[in-house]
Computed example of a mutant assay.
Amino acid sequence: MTKTVTVAGASGLVGSNIVKEALERGYHVNGTLRDASDESKTKWLMALPGAADRLTLFSAETTDSASFDAALQGADAVFIACFPPIYKATDGTPAKELDRARGYAEIVAPVRDGCLNVLAAAERARVKNVMLCSSTSSTNPPEGVAVKTETNAVSDAEFQMSEGKFTSAEKIVMETAARDFCVRHDMRLAILLPTMMLGPVILPQHLEGDSAGFVTSAVRDGKTRHDKVPAGSMSVSHVGDVAKLFLAAYESGARGRFFAVYDSVPWRDLYAELGKHVPREIMPAPLEGEPEEPTRFDFTRRDSLGVAMRDIHSVIAETCDWLKSKPFG
């Protein structure tokens, strides 16, 4: 019998690609989004190969645990990908400008509580396999490490909040709450940690996001994210590879945290690759001097999942070529 999996956040950048990958592998998929009658999102999901026969969409709000009950009935696993970073408070105040009380209440707590609501619904439905999308922003301990592993690179939420980094703190608080819940209820938990994700997207709305924006702004809008090439680096992956990591973690019975990036690359090198595909005159001013040393990772655990990650050259080239084809008209 074909297994059913539930994707919470099916219309998000990561969630929609998990839906696509799961359908390609023959699963029945129950997907949740805030409003399953919103055709500006559902039409793209239902156009995926296999969706007509094996994708069912449900409305669900992370503030209401019971709203996930129907989507989780009969599922073997839940993929939780419905918590993109929150950068602003409810009144529009940037997260970094909030005090401790407001930052926790308006940025951190909603993500923690929402994740626990989804997990509570999964526990009621006796779903024992949980795949959670977090972020490498949860892998920045107060004292840096020379080479990051999933076990030595764990953020300290209180330290992050003391520096006003509530958007980063939300991820490690969510992970900790999810881990404790799954331990108490004997549920298997795998946590995937991506950063900037490029590659073709499924919904046109994703072109406006922070990840795709690095390439979209240059190819479509004729401008770049930076006026001058930054000295730092960015961790990058192909969003399709991230989805494959999620499915691999599920199918292999994996537990714990896994980096979901190809590597960390200096912005100088990212712009050098982008510059091969866009007009030279729109490129940012070059970096003076050498870039900072990029983050170093130990990818032993990631590689144990058996997914061949596409390199930066290939990812940027594919993304640029795809955008130039005007995929959404």
Rank of each mutant, 00 (worst) to 15 (best):
F246T: 01
M187D: 04
P84G: 02
A8H: 05
A243L: 02
H226S: 12
S252N: 12
A272L: 07
S325A: 11
L192V: 06
I86R: 13
M283L: 15
G50A: 08
V261M: 09
T319G: 03
D69K: 06
E39W: 07
D241Y: 05
T176Q: 06
P230F: 02
G306Q: 07
Q73V: 15
R257P: 06
K3Q: 15
S211T: 01
M196C: 11
L305E: 07
T6G: 14
G289H: 00
P266M: 09
A153H: 01
N17S: 12
A272H: 11
F83D: 04
K324A: 11
G31W: 00
G74L: 05
L274Q: 09
L247A: 04
A153R: 04
V315G: 04
F83W: 01
A70V: 14
L48T: 02
I18F: 03
N129E: 14
V14T: 13
T136V: 13
P200N: 03
G114E: 05
G240C: 10
D180R: 09
E273A: 13
I191Y: 02
V130G: 10
S37W: 07
R310S: 12
H277P: 13
V201I: 07
D263K: 12
A81S: 05
N140D: 15
G164S: 08
A254L: 08
G289A: 00
A105L: 05
D53V: 09
R257Y: 14
V7L: 04
V173P: 08
A169M: 04
M309L: 09
L119Y: 00
A89H: 06
A66E: 12
K128Y: 01
K88D: 09
A218Q: 00
L189C: 10
D53K: 15
L207H: 12
K223I: 13
H28V: 12
R301T: 01
A243Y: 11
W322N: 11
G26S: 09
P141F: 01
T2V: 10
K165R: 14
L198C: 04
G289D: 03
E21T: 08
Y271C: 13
P141A: 10
S155A: 10
F166D: 03
C133R: 06
L189T: 01
R124V: 07
D35S: 14
P291F: 00
V307D: 05
E318Q: 15
T56I: 13
R302L: 09
W267I: 15
S168K: 09
R124S: 07
D113N: 14
K96L: 07
